[in-house]
Simulated scan of single mutants.
Amino acid sequence: MKIYPAIDIIGRECVRLVKGDYSQKTTYSQNPVEVAKKWEEAGGEFLHIVDLDGAKSGDMPNFELIRTIVSELNIPVEVGGGIRSMECVDKYLNAGIARVILGTSALKNPDFVKLAVEKYEDKIAVGIDAKNGMVAISGWEDVSNTPAVEFAKLMESIGVRYIIYTDIATDGMLNGPNIEAMAEMLENVNVNIIASGGVTTLNDVKKLAALGVEGAIIGKALYTGNIDLKEAILKGRC
Rank of each mutant, 00 (worst) to 15 (best):
Q24H: 08
M1W: 12
T166K: 01
T166R: 02
G82Q: 14
K153A: 11
L65I: 00
E231K: 08
K114R: 15
S85K: 03
A42N: 10
L102N: 10
L234P: 03
K114E: 11
F112K: 03
L17N: 11
I7L: 00
G103E: 01
P61R: 06
I164T: 00
D167W: 11
A42F: 12
V205L: 11
N226D: 15
S23C: 03
C88L: 05
S144A: 12
M86V: 06
L186I: 05
I128M: 15
G176S: 12
I158N: 14
K153F: 07
V113M: 00
V213N: 06
F63L: 15
I83D: 02
T146E: 14
A42L: 06
T68S: 05
K131S: 15
T146S: 13
G44I: 09
I101V: 15
A169R: 13
A221G: 00
G11L: 01
L65E: 07
N192S: 15
T170M: 08
V18E: 09
A221R: 01
V113D: 07
S29K: 03
Y162V: 12
L47N: 08
A42S: 07
E34D: 05
K230D: 11
G127I: 13
V160I: 12
A195E: 11
E214S: 07
A210T: 10
D59T: 12
A221K: 07
V89Y: 00
G197C: 14
A55H: 08
T104L: 00
E78P: 13
I75E: 04
P76Q: 04
E187F: 06
M60R: 14
V205E: 04
K114Q: 15
K25P: 01
K220R: 00
R84T: 14
I193W: 11
I128G: 13
M185R: 06
H48Q: 06
P177F: 11
T27P: 03
E184N: 12
V79F: 02
S71H: 05
A195Y: 04
V160N: 12
L65P: 06
D8A: 00
M1K: 11
E156M: 05
R161A: 00
Y92T: 09
V50H: 04
A195L: 03
V160A: 04
G176F: 12
L65W: 04
V117P: 10
V191I: 14
M173K: 01
K19Q: 08
E40G: 05
K123W: 04
A152S: 10
D167V: 15
V189S: 05
V89P: 02
E78A: 10
Y165S: 04
N203D: 11
D51I: 04
V113S: 05
G43A: 01
Q30E: 03
N175E: 10
A55M: 01
Y223E: 02
N62T: 12
A148H: 03
I194W: 10
L52V: 02
A125H: 03
I66K: 03
G236C: 05
A221I: 01
V160F: 13
G215N: 13
V149N: 01
V126M: 00
M155A: 04
A36Y: 02
A116V: 09
V89W: 02
E78Q: 15
T26N: 00
N132M: 04
V199N: 15
V15Q: 00
I168T: 06
A209Q: 15
G133H: 06
D59C: 10
G44P: 09
K114M: 08
I49P: 13
T201S: 15
I49F: 10
A136W: 02
T170N: 12
S196Q: 06
L93T: 15
